[in-house]
């Protein structure tokens, strides 16, 4: 394997070819089509290479997203993984790996916790980090204006680019109009569409990235 191929982020078990460090992916699909599960599997694939992980859980509690993460075969390793949840803090939460921000509308708070965790992993020598954002739709729903959401997404994707990380950020196309999605998509390097076919099969399609399978792939 060439050095370049080794540096790429791989997605064992998901029909997506490895991508360059610094890639930001928009994962678009309705909740019922297993969109969250695909994104989590893409993140859990990093465990094969002992990569770090930061999950931003705007839709759910940290406990719930970690349960989903374990459900796709992941193991929450406190040495290099952390979650930001956006809910009322549970009593006496002094878990350094679970940070709590008051609400999904507090993009400043989420951004600060994100940078703090990312910077912390970097300081501890975890150089390869995957980021999961669940979901942009929730941030859009809570935000009064779009500008802070763009600013927040630029912050996350900018960090991922400069630190040569990987992000998968989920959006629900049934909750947003196509103009909003395509303007949000502008911040990302590629898009993974997820859908469920009439016979109940899950499929995904990668767009905007080189060397990826053509068209819809079952998974």
């Amino acid at each position: 394997m060439s050095q370049d191929a080794q540096r790429r982020y791989q997605f064992e078990g998901v029909p997506i070819e490895p991508v360059q460090p610094g890639t930001n992916l928009l994962v678009a699909g309705p909740p019922f089509a297993g969109t969250k599960a695909v994104a989590l599997r893409m993140l859990a694939a990093g465990e094969l290479a002992d990569e770090g992980l930061v999950l931003v859980a705007a839709d759910d509690t940290a406990e719930a997203i970690l349960e989903d993460y374990t459900g796709v075969g992941g193991t929450f390793n406190r040495g290099r993984m952390a979650v930001i949840e956006c809910a009322a803090p549970s009593a006496n939460n002094d878990d350094e790996n679970v940070r709590t921000v008051r609400s999904p509308s507090d993009l400043t708070g989420i951004g600060i916790e994100f940078s703090s965790l990312y910077e912390g992993l970097y300081t501890e020598g975890v150089e390869r980090v995957r980021i999961g954002l669940f979901s942009i739709s929730t941030l859009l729903m809570y935000a009064e204006e779009l500008q802070p959401v763009y600013r927040f997404l630029h912050t996350i994707t900018g960090r991922v680019r400069s630190a040569e990380g990987l992000s998968t950020c989920v959006i629900d196309p049934t909750a947003q109009d196509e103009q909003t999605i395509s303007s949000v998509e502008q911040t990302f390097d590629g898009r993974v569409d997820v859908r469920q076919t009439d016979d109940g099969g899950d499929q995904l399609r990668v767009r905007g990235l080189p060397d990826q399978p053509d068209g819809w792939q079952p998974f």
């Binding site: 609400s103 993009l107 951004g111 703090s116 912050t155």
Partner: peptide, 18 residues
């Protein structure tokens, strides 16, 4: 990070560096 009060500043979005 947890000591920073963002209540009145939700939409600002700033970087944070220790």
């Amino acid at each position: 990070a947890s000591e920073i009060d963002t209540t009145a500043f939700e939409g600002l979005v700033a970087e944070y560096l220790p």
